[in-house]
Amino acid sequence: MADSTEGDTDAQYLGLLVLALITLIPGLVIHLFIIRVNVTDWWKGRSVTPVDHVVTSLGISRMCIQCANILYFFIYPLFRQNLDLLVTLLIGLICDSLNYVNMWLTSLFSIVLCLKISNFHTRLFLYLRGMIVHRTVYLIGASVLLSAVNSLISLLLTVTKISSGGTYNTTMANPMTNCADSDYVYPVTIAVSFPLLFYCIFSVLLFTSLYHHTTKMKMSSNSSINLETYYSLMKFVSITFIYNTVYFICYISCILYYFVYCVNPDRLYIVLDFLTVLHSSYLIYKTAKLRSQMSKVLQNITDFLFLRKDTETRENIEVVDL
């Protein structure tokens, strides 16, 4: 019976590893593509908008999250018994920080997009547009710093819990906390709620602005106005809102699942990685610059494959002639 159980565990581990790698490989390609296009534009002195800055930072954070999850769930368990408690806690700190960064950057993306596109004319809105849009790089840095602080608070709570007499089980799946440690769940929930709140507010504002604008244009006597661009933007905002909501729900579910069952839901974390890959792919599709560069890359790959096939065909014909 023990051998059968061990075999099932190994099979599940291998299956999870295969799923993670299937998500990791296209994810790294997509995220690296986004980073490369925007960094190349910046390097060549071309115009790089605040939205480009946020999208590039999102690509970097998501690529780091995928790599960290692979190390955390599949490489780290092999060496867990030989690692000190401090190293184990730092590994958890890094993984949590990366997830927080992704959430804050996604919210910042919504804020910058709303301030750039919306046509509100209130003093507060115009002030925020002038202040935030021109300080996007600083806000990206602030998002990273705030995420590190949030993770550090959880780490300090865990260390305090252990120092005050709590037991630490080194065989647990989650090295950050003692099993069902409520001191960890509360700061995580609060840290996740703030970026979600900002994202919802600015996404609703952007959608409302676009909706009212299209309504006025439809009522206008000028029938030659093309509304496809606005409808496309509204669709983009809606799909991105759905993605972000699902991502936050899945992440909170991961925390609550561990809190209830004392087991890390590895499959849910793989789902989170898959969601980031889907969203980055959608960003490429909806961003004209990225879509154009991707078309060129795909065209070059197609030309290379067909050229290679034609070359092999000619070589086979020559061999037959000989």
Score class of each variant (00 low, 15 high):
residue 61 S to R: 01
residue 183 D to E: 06
residue 316 N to L: 12
residue 93 L to Q: 06
residue 156 L to C: 07
residue 266 D to R: 13
residue 190 I to V: 15
residue 236 F to S: 09
residue 169 N to T: 02
residue 161 K to C: 04
residue 234 M to Q: 09
residue 183 D to V: 00
residue 115 L to G: 00
residue 299 Q to L: 11
residue 219 M to E: 12
residue 66 Q to D: 15
residue 46 R to I: 01
residue 268 L to N: 02
residue 35 I to K: 03
residue 12 Q to N: 05
residue 220 S to E: 12
residue 299 Q to T: 11
residue 197 L to V: 09
residue 152 L to E: 03
residue 9 T to W: 15
residue 31 H to C: 11
residue 57 S to N: 11
residue 111 I to G: 11
residue 208 T to F: 11
residue 314 R to L: 09
residue 321 D to Q: 14
residue 244 N to R: 06
residue 26 P to A: 08
residue 232 S to N: 10
residue 250 C to P: 00
residue 52 D to G: 00
residue 61 S to G: 04
residue 127 Y to W: 15
residue 293 Q to P: 02
residue 276 T to C: 08
residue 14 L to P: 01
residue 197 L to N: 08
residue 261 Y to Q: 08
residue 279 H to P: 02
residue 133 V to R: 03
residue 289 K to Y: 04
residue 109 F to P: 09
residue 279 H to N: 13
residue 190 I to Y: 15
residue 210 L to N: 02
residue 187 P to K: 09
residue 71 L to V: 15
residue 85 L to H: 07
residue 129 R to P: 07
residue 8 D to Q: 04
residue 186 Y to E: 07
residue 12 Q to C: 02
residue 142 A to H: 09
residue 201 I to N: 11
residue 298 L to W: 05
residue 37 V to G: 00
residue 292 S to G: 13
residue 216 K to R: 14
residue 240 T to F: 07
residue 177 T to E: 15
